[in-house]
Design a protein around this nucleic acid. Sequence first.
DNA 1: CATGATACGGAACATCGTTCCGTTTGCAAG
DNA 2: CTTGCAAACGGAACGATGTTCCGTATCATG
Lengths: 198, 198
Amino acid sequence: MGVVADKGGATGGSAPRKRADARRNQEALLDAAAAAFVRSGVDVPVRDIAAKAGVGVGTIYRHFPTRADLIVAVYRHQIEACAEAGPTLLANSGTPHDALARWMNLFVDFLVTKHGLAEALRSDDAAFQTLHAHFLDRLVPVCAHLLDAAASAGEIRADMDAYELMRGVGNLCIGADTDPRYDARRMVDLVVTGLRLH
Amino acid sequence: MGVVADKGGATGGSAPRKRADARRNQEALLDAAAAAFVRSGVDVPVRDIAAKAGVGVGTIYRHFPTRADLIVAVYRHQIEACAEAGPTLLANSGTPHDALARWMNLFVDFLVTKHGLAEALRSDDAAFQTLHAHFLDRLVPVCAHLLDAAASAGEIRADMDAYELMRGVGNLCIGADTDPRYDARRMVDLVVTGLRLH
DNA sequence: CATGATACGGAACATCGTTCCGTTTGCAAG
DNA sequence: CTTGCAAACGGAACGATGTTCCGTATCATG
């Protein structure tokens, strides 16, 4: 017999289940934010999101204390997908270096299709520490794994730090969606090529 | 006999010489801005600069209609020095590729020692178009020259666009002064290495 | 249904860029 | 030196945006 309406949930009782209207508003906010991000980038004014979701600005801050929390919530699924693609590519590619190059392409595509996300990622604004941290926690280990595999295969130098590489690639993606003369993919390819041993 | 107080100057008479207080204030503003940029980065509030220079905010906007104009004025000398270093390095280095690598180091050092300058450079804010344009006008040709020399020597691939390279390197410098785990020079080296023919 | 906790909304505050205009000041002609 | 005026000044005022706060409305429970 399943517990039909357990107040605490199954994971330890520390979350006393929110009120129905609270969940509804959170849902509406995520939808509105996702739409607004596509339309106007992740820097879209808080008021716009609130209006689109039909709530007050206070409600946004209650559910998502910082803008970063909102961004993380909106893109969590896609970040997850990118992380999971790492091992898959490693198994299905000809060489580890090839897998690394493909995975970088995925990562770059994710970043450049979200206006301003790369900027926000590297902002030194304290409010974005959460966003930065989440990206790193989830993706740096995947990148490190790919680097290790390629290094073990003798394809690339062994002294490349995964964090530094991710950070650099993230930087290369900044503004890539607004300048037709600039292609972040080419620059990232250059970096990945530069890793090779000669 | 020299013209002691020529109103128009020697360059065609189009500049009717400013008033003394105007020149004094412009000087004070440049000094105050330079100091403020070092202390708080190029995003320092306009009011702070005005206060430090002992003038009103209106005076800043009269002398420098956009923030970019002020930044350009403050850093003009250093930009010029960087541009002139290109041919010098080419003449004094072992190989053109070596000259390119050294020049990139100069450029990176210039950018990372100015907090936030790299960000400002690539901002899509219309007010920074001037800054962007000045950098490009002055430095892209130098970079192109170095690339040509290295390509002609058969050291690097010939299809690298100077603008795209500068843009990418500029991006790599963003935030390099605030993160001890990230070294823009290493990433730029990787890019320059990636240019080599194998 | 009564009641207390929870969540809501938006006014209010703070910060910053930018504009505008009444006032001051340098400069040169008389 | 005096005077007139164009140039320059300063800072109040405005608009946009992030953030906080609290009186009010709503939900869930006994």
